[in-house]
């Protein structure tokens, strides 16, 4: 049996409300909240980045896996906000966890699905018996241009998953990837903020790939939506995942535990992995979970997991996502937010 042996998440404590951003740019907060189905989003502290978020998420995963970090044979960080252009985030993460030096490391980038890229490869390496444990992380301090619709959603956080064959809590039953060349959202080298194709990011991008991957994995595996206890879809806003799930035949009750975007925002590479982690926090043995990511550019990775009895032994060994979402929140005004996100030009 190959699957997840430990999982963990991390969210910064800082938040900004949709009303605060809307007020800054002369937008009607009621319309924005209704349109995007968002209330607030996480904001990284000035001393937080993809590396620090990855380390904290991975430490929580290690608490649940209860393994020696030195046994991790591969460590992959998926993000579109790696702090260095050249120097892997994973090297710092592995050093901080005590997983060096006998470990294979790479950073992934595929817009919002870099986290599930890492999960896909980590799972494959364990299945092929090339490593005993592989750690996959999806984390971001997402960028959104001032005044752009993305500014209401682009947030920070991440989740980590350790794959292995012993002590599995969620077995991987199947995987499927669906990818095309779709220029819906991009950021050129050196550009500070990403650009996107507005409404083009919906049907030809998000929905085509999410539905394509989900339908394909359901056909391949023979499962129907009603067979699943839960389903998690990438959350660029509140509306898209619920619409995609409904079109596939999933109910809101199946999606609600992982639908954390109204309080978290879109953590890009950490979005669907963190929704999945929130679902693991409440899933029961034998539950089936469908996870479908989406990354602009564009593609989707789909996974079917089956929970094992061990989940009941490990879920309380680290802080749960609901607690991170609801406790210790520190609200920022727009000026503080602009400072925290480095949007203010400073002298050297």
């Amino acid at each position: 049996m190959v699957g997840i042996v430990g999982y963990g998440s991390y969210l910064p404590r800082y938040r900004i409300k949709v009303e605060e951003i809307a007020h800054q740019w002369g937008r009607d907060p009621v319309t924005v909240k209704r349109g995007l189905m968002l209330n607030e989003k996480t904001v990284p502290g000035m001393d937080e980045d993809t590396i620090t978020i990855s380390v904290e998420a991975a430490k929580n995963a290690l608490k649940r896996a209860n393994i020696d970090p030195a046994e991790i044979g591969a460590l992959y960080v998926g993000s579109e906000s790696h702090p260095y252009a050249v120097k892997p985030s994973g090297t710092v993460v592995a050093e901080a966890l005590g997983a060096v030096p006998n470990v294979h490391i790479a950073d992934y980038e595929f817009a919002c699905k870099a986290g599930t890229e890492a999960m896909f490869v980590a799972y494959g390496l364990v299945k092929a018996d090339l490593v005993k444990y592989a750690l996959a992380i999806g984390a971001d301090t997402s960028q959104g241009a001032p005044g752009d619709a993305l500014e209401f959603s682009a947030s920070a956080g991440g989740s980590a998953f350790i794959f292995g064959k012993e002590g599995v809590i969620a077995e991987v039953l199947d995987t499927f990837s669906y990818t095309t060349d779709t220029p819906d959202f991009w950021r050129r080298e050196g550009a500070f903020y990403p650009l996107h194709g507005g409404r083009f990011t919906g049907e030809p991008a998000y929905f085509k790939h999410i539905l394509g991957a989900a339908k394909a994995i359901l056909d391949k595996s023979g499962y129907k939506p009603a067979d699943f206890a839960y389903a998690v879809f990438h959350m660029p806003n509140g509306k898209f995942p619920l619409t995609a799930g409904k079109r596939l035949g999933f109910t809101k009750a199946q999606m609600e535990p992982g639908w954390i975007v109204p309080l978290m925002g879109n953590t890009y590479s950490g979005s669907s992995p963190t929704g999945f982690a929130a679902t693991l926090d409440i899933a029961k043995p034998d539950d089936l979970i469908l996870l479908v990511s989406f990354g602009s550019g564009a593609g989707s990775d789909a996974f079917i997991f089956k929970m094992t009895k061990r989940i009941d032994d490990v879920r309380d060994k680290a802080e749960k996502l609901k607690s991170m979402l609801e406790n210790n929140r520190i609200y920022l005004d727009y000026g503080q937010y602009a400072k925290y996100r480095g949007k203010i030009i400073m002298n050297e």
Partner: peptide, 13 residues
């Protein structure tokens, strides 16, 4: 685990 300081805009973190 947090960022302590950066060695300028082009140095190590």
């Amino acid at each position: 685990f947090r960022k302590l300081y950066e060695e300028g805009h082009t140095g190590i973190i």
